[in-house]
């Protein structure tokens, strides 16, 4: 209906009449029904297909700042570098400090600086991995920006999200930040060497994690003492093996 004179703007119901204003076309309603994350999800699916073809097992490491993601990577790379070929993507708001620590282990690494951004997205990762020879890589580790909230929503094309929780953060983090622990396949409780000095109830922490995600797998370790690292390495080796089999890449093609 025309707001100036009240006449219908369409159809034969409008009797012939004259006035001194133009009828604006009425706004049209377009049905969209598109997820806000649809574009990221499309790019992540592209990354995933690329990783699948190359037969590379991909993990997205997420946690609060200071939980020990980089230290876990450093120790893992130093101890497994002989058996497995790694590549690492480091995400931080600024500096290349983490990339320098990884480069010191001899593993190829790319640093992404997100500036004001609080998470990595599939587009950034797609470009970062262009630098790697994925066909000659067994395991790609993506260390996300330290943040227990935002990275949960952004698929990067990984096989699994691995959420680290250090014992100094408190056992109730899975309840407080449920999105991340629901999105994760594996929770690693890190810095267990500090357990004698603090009030952290391991059983309660495991229960809290299962309350938000009954299927979550849980490992406990200390990157400092080395306790529990063997179980983590077994978990990685199993993932690499399964990915090779699923992608049809024969293991001898991957072995240097």
């Amino acid at each position: 209906m025309c707001i100036d004179c009240g006449c219908p703007t369409t159809g034969a119901a409008s009797p012939p009449h004259h006035h001194d204003h133009e009828h604006e076309p009425a706004p049209r309603t377009l049905c969209v029904e598109e997820d806000l994350l649809a574009k990221n999800d499309r790019l992540a699916a592209g990354n995933r297909a690329h990783f699948q073809r190359a037969g590379v097992f991909v993990l997205n490491l997420v946690s609060s700042p200071g939980s020990g993601k980089t230290t876990l990577l450093e120790r893992t790379l130093r101890e497994l570098n002989v058996q497995l070929r790694f590549a690492v993507v480091e995400g931080d708001q600024q500096t290349s400090r983490d990339a320098e620590r990884i480069a010191a282990t001899g593993v190829p690494v790319r640093q992404i600086n997100t500036g004001a951004g609080c998470h990595l997205d599939a587009h950034m990762v797609g470009h970062a991995v262009e630098a790697f020879d994925l066909a000659q890589t067994d395991l790609l580790m993506i260390e996300n920006v330290g943040n227990l909230v935002c990275p949960a929503s952004f698929d990067l094309g990984e096989d699994h999200k691995v959420a680290l929780l250090s014992v100094t953060e408190g056992e109730d983090k899975p309840l407080k930040y449920p999105q991340m622990f629901r999105a994760a396949t594996l929770m690693i409780i890190n810095k267990t060497d500090l357990l004698p000095y603090i009030d952290f109830d391991l059983n309660r922490c495991r229960d809290f994690a299962r309350q938000v995600n009954p299927k979550i797998e849980i490992l406990e370790l200390s990157c400092r003492s080395g306790a529990g690292m063997a179980e983590w390495y077994d978990w990685l080796a199993a993932g690499v093996r399964e990915k090779r089999e699923a992608s049809g890449v024969r293991s001898e093609e991957k072995t240097p």
């Binding site: 706004p27 309603t29 377009l30 029904e33």
Partner: peptide, 10 residues
């Protein structure tokens, strides 16, 4: 949900 449902356009 995080979804764009519809638009009003001219």
């Amino acid at each position: 949900e995080l979804r764009v449902l519809e638009l009003e356009v001219d």
